[in-house]
């Protein structure tokens, strides 16, 4: 999802018997749902995996400002402009809390920024798709923030205290975003013929990339097994994707829009007999291609971040120099 392919240690999780006493005590705390806090001992693999996951999530929030930021200056009413601007601003805020959470694990925001700008760090594949019409702003709020919530609600229970607390704040705002997005889709789908067509077209383009947000099937993944044992991942990618489809298909029907997948059919037997939707296979070649840097907007997104950072260097240096001068004046006085 926002962290779609987080590599863990690459080893199967150890059993309690295989662990040394320190590691065992750590695992027992996690199993007892006691939060791990920054100053406490933690296995190096836990720390590294968390840094990777939290920073991928933070980068996704920051890069995620760009596709929607595109439409702020073109929003069709003053209210829509304010709502969209506030939303994109929230995403910057999410990035900020998450970088702060990552910093508690012994990295700096500047180091993480460097990793993003050099192309070393990943961010969610979804933000490499273009926003072509106003309806894309609705579709992103509805589908992309919707998928984000699906993934982040369980992360509120994450074993690492600062990440879990950041997720609690973030989730509240994401659910606003989703409602606002759905509201745009509602107005468009009840609007003129052109507006309806715009809404359907946006759903057509954003549906599959939204399903890709959950990442490839990880039922067999050792990375996922270790992350689950550590309490930094709660559900499998496939389970979350299924939940998302089950929630979203009826919402599309309510809008009178068609989900672009002819394989969607209700299946009574799914979800342990509670029923759920069967759906078609995601184009994973496209997903890996986008992740490898070949999506429609990868170069533009990263380019925009690099430009903002480089153009802003004099500004950050100026503030720093002033702070140094002030400190020197204080000492002299």
């Amino acid at each position: 999802m926002y962290a779609q392919k987080v590599e863990s240690t690459g080893a199967r999780p150890k059993s309690l018997d295989e662990m040394d006493p320190q590691e065992r005590a750590f695992q027992e705390r996690i199993d007892a749902n006691i939060k791990i806090e920054p100053k406490e001992w933690m296995p190096e693999g836990y720390r590294k995996t968390l840094i990777r996951q939290i920073s991928q999530h933070a980068h996704s929030e920051i890069v995620g400002q760009l596709p929607e930021g595109n439409w702020i200056t073109r929003a069709p009413t003053l209210d829509r402009k304010a709502i969209l601007l506030a939303k994109v601003q929230d995403e910057a805020g999410h990035g900020l809390y998450l970088y702060c959470a990552a910093e508690t694990l012994g990295v700096t925001r500047d180091q993480l920024t460097e990793q993003l700008l050099s192309g070393k760090a990943k961010y969610s594949s979804i933000f490499n798709y273009p926003t072509l019409t106003w309806a894309d702003i609705g579709a992103i709020g509805w589908l992309v923030d919707g998928a984000a919530i699906m993934n982040q609600v369980p992360l509120q229970r994450c074993s690492y205290g600062p990440y879990s607390r950041a997720m609690i704040r973030v989730c509240k705002e994401e659910s606003f975003h989703q409602r606002q997005g759905y509201d745009i889709m509602m107005v468009l789908s009840k609007g003129s013929e052109e507006q309806r067509a715009m809404a359907q077209d946006a759903l057509n383009r954003w549906w599959w990339p939204s399903l890709m947000m959950f990442g490839p099937s990880d039922a067999e993944s050792v990375h996922s097994a270790q992350s689950m044992a550590w309490g930094i991942k709660q559900d499998s990618n496939d389970d979350l994707r299924q939940k998302f489809v089950d929630q979203t298909v009826p919402q599309a029907e309510y809008l009178g829009l068609k989900v672009p997948d002819d394989d969607i059919v209700w299946n009574e037997a799914k979800n342990d007999g509670k029923g759920g939707y069967d759906f078609g296979e995601v184009n994973w070649d496209e997903f890996f291609d986008v992740l490898a840097g070949n999506g429609p907007c990868n170069a533009e997104r990263l380019g925009a971040r690099v430009k903002a950072w480089e153009d802003g260097a004099w500004f950050r240096d100026g503030l720093m120099a002033h702070a140094d001068k002030q400190a020197a004046r204080k000492i002299a006085a």
């Binding site: 930021g69 702020i72 601003q89 910057a92 153009d311």
Partner: peptide
Amino acid sequence: NAAWCGHAPALEEDIALANVALDLIGQAK
């Protein structure tokens, strides 16, 4: 100001300038 959103020199400035723009949109209304 709103055109800066996502492109400011630091996250804190991005957020602060968006706040100013939001206030001004409210006042314009």
